[in-house]
């Protein structure tokens, strides 16, 4: 459906033809939250994010991959924390005053991801998001959903499900 098109429930031939429509792509515009990791800007759909918190003491959980930093408690709920740099295969870095934990939805649960800093929220047209090129820096393509440009800068959209999939 073209952006902004109105549809009627009783008469929606266009919708019928376009069966592959994503459930939420109806709007045509999507809001992204940008954040920095090793001098590159990454982004997640705002709908995937629960909240952003400051870094707090993380309790390590033994016998887990090194990209799993441990757990924190968030208003009484236990939340696993991913070291996003490590998860994406980037160099590890110290934490500073801009370091944040982005808390995202993971099914019924939540997960936290450590990022260097938060940049901003950007509105991007769905059609402006392109599939990932075969090579993007050092990050493996499987973690990337797409790339887009915002104010002349390259923004990498993360494939959150893959990032949070600990089975692989």
């Amino acid at each position: 459906m073209p952006p902004g098109a109105k549809s009627n429930k009783d008469n929606d031939p266009e919708g019928l033809d376009r069966e592959e429509d994503q459930a939420s792509a109806a709007e045509g515009l999507t809001e992204l939250l940008g954040f920095m990791l090793a001098d590159e800007e990454y982004a997640l759909d705002i709908l995937e994010i629960k909240e952003i918190i400051r870094l707090r003491t993380i309790t390590a959980v033994p016998r887990t991959p090194d990209y799993l930093k441990g757990i924190i408690t968030l208003r009484g709920v236990i939340v696993p924390v991913f070291d996003l740099r490590r998860r994406l295969g980037l160099d590890e870095a110290g934490h500073g005053q801009h370091t944040r934990i982005v808390v995202v939805y993971r099914g019924d649960e939540f997960a936290g991801m450590i990022v260097d800093s938060i940049t901003h929220v950007m509105e991007v047209g769905v059609e402006e998001i392109e599939p990932p090129p075969p090579t993007i820096g050092t990050v493996e393509v499987e973690f990337i959903k797409g790339v887009t440009r915002f104010q002349e800068r390259l923004v990498i959209l993360l494939n959150l499900a893959r990032v949070l999939d600990v089975k692989s």
Partner: peptide, 8 residues
């Protein structure tokens, strides 16, 4: 006691 959740 709380569960560590699915990740762990």
């Amino acid at each position: 006691i709380k569960s560590l959740g699915e990740v762990f």
